[in-house]
Amino acid sequence: MMSNQEPTALERFINGILPENPVYRQLLGMCPTLAVTNGLKPAMTMAGATAFVLICANIMTSLMRNLLKPHLRILVFTLTIATFVTIADKFLAAYLYPMSKVLGPYVPLIIVNCLIISRCEICSSKQGVGTAIADGFGMSIGFALALASIAGVRELLGSGTLFGFEILSPEIWPAWGIMVLPPGAFLTLGLLLGLAEWIGSMKKKTA
């Protein structure tokens, strides 16, 4: 099953952060990227919950990789992901109750975050536990960075704060309400995606 061309654990880890960034390079997990980035606090809670689910699901599928039947693998992935999402949801409701109210339905919706099932399919169902863990961490860091970049821009321009602390006082910055509304999510994502592409193409030219 295992071929020699599969990336190593270190390559998986590094790829997840920038070269194969889940949001900017793979355009996966768009639902949380757009929905919970109106502030850094909800965005980072979401990144943490997603990281927990992704790493746990990667470990489980990697452990079971030799037992998987090809036509039943998606079922096993979904079952595994759904279990860890439910655990994450319950933990948030128990220990971070106000945050779990802010995130509302978006925590249970981690189940349909394609980032997680794609990592099960591409990496952890084919490679060992160590590689799967490295991959999970790399992708989680990449996802967290992407959410932080979008949420940072939106919160700063939309409310003049970062993590709830005032950065731009109302006198010098009239908060752009639209940035914390859904249109702000699309605008910010579009512009940052364009910027990432532009930087990528500049790098290629100079290389």
Partner: peptide, 9 residues
């Protein structure tokens, strides 16, 4: 495997 995982989870 699916049945076992279902019970376990």
């Amino acid at each position: 495997l699916v049945i076992l995982l279902g019970l376990l989870y």
